[in-house]
C-alpha cells in the first residue's frame, strides 16, 4: 500500500514538474508585438528569439460565447483584466508556423490583416529536437478601432495656437518684426 502511494506520488510529481516546466515561458523568447493595446484592423506579430531553438507560433482571437455562437469581445470589456465571468473560446487565425532559428538573434514577424476590434492572443511554443513542447509564451492584446478623431491633433498646438486669434497675432508679430 505504502509502495503504491509512494509510486503514485512520484508519478504525480513528475507529471506536475513536466507541466510546470512546459508552462513556464522561455526566457529566450519575447513577444515584442503586439503590445497590450493596438488600434486598427491589422495585427503585427513580432517575436524575438535569442537562441538557436525551434519555435511554433499561433495566433487566436478570443471570442465570447453568447448562446450557441461566438462573438468578438467588446474592446471596452476586453480591457478589463478580469474576464473570469466570460466563457472564452480561442479561434485560430492562421496555420501555426514553425521556425528553426539559427544564430543567437532572430525576429519572427508576420502581419495579420482585416481583423475586427476585440481580444487576441499570440502563443509561441518552444520545441525540443523531438518536436515536444518544452515551454510556451503567451501575450494578449486588445484591438481598438482605428481612431478617426482629428480634434486631438489640434489640441497639440492649442497652447501655442488658440485658433484664428493666435493666427492673427502671429501674422501681426511677423509683419512688425519684418
Amino acid at each position: 500500500m505504502k509502495r503504491c502511494i509512494l509510486t503514485a506520488l512520484i508519478v504525480l510529481m513528475v507529471l506536475a514538474s513536466a507541466t510546470i516546466f512546459a508552462s513556464a515561458s522561455d526566457p529566450e523568447v519575447s513577444i515584442i508585438s503586439p503590445t497590450q493595446t493596438v488600434s486598427g484592423n491589422n495585427l503585427l506579430i513580432s517575436v524575438r528569439v535569442t537562441a538557436p531553438i525551434t519555435i511554433k507560433v499561433y495566433a487566436y482571437e478570443e471570442k465570447q460565447k453568447i448562446g450557441d455562437t461566438y462573438v468578438s469581445i467588446d474592446p471596452a470589456i476586453a480591457s478589463d483584466k478580469d474576464l473570469s465571468n466570460i466563457t472564452i473560446k480561442s479561434i485560430s487565425l492562421m496555420t501555426p508556423e514553425t521556425v528553426d532559428v539559427t544564430g543567437n538573434l532572430h525576429f519572427y514577424s508576420k502581419k495579420l490583416e482585416n481583423l475586427n476590434p476585440g481580444l487576441y492572443r499570440i502563443k509561441v511554443e518552444t520545441l525540443n529536437s523531438d518536436g515536444e513542447v518544452v515551454s510556451y509564451t503567451n501575450a494578449r492584446t486588445v484591438m481598438m478601432p482605428k481612431s478617426l478623431d482629428t480634434t486631438s491633433g489640434k489640441a497639440i498646438f492649442q497652447t501655442q495656437n488658440q485658433g484664428a486669434l493666435q493666427w492673427v497675432q502671429n501674422l501681426l508679430k511677423s509683419i512688425f518684426r519684418n
Binding site: S30, I32, S33, L44, S46, R48, S109, K111
Partner: peptide, 14 residues
C-alpha cells in the same frame, strides 16, 4: 522600434 522593442522611428519593410 516596433519590430525589435526599441525607440528607433526609422522605418523598414516587413
Amino acid at each position: 522600434g516596433t519590430l525589435v522593442g526599441t525607440d528607433n522611428q526609422t522605418v523598414l519593410p516587413l
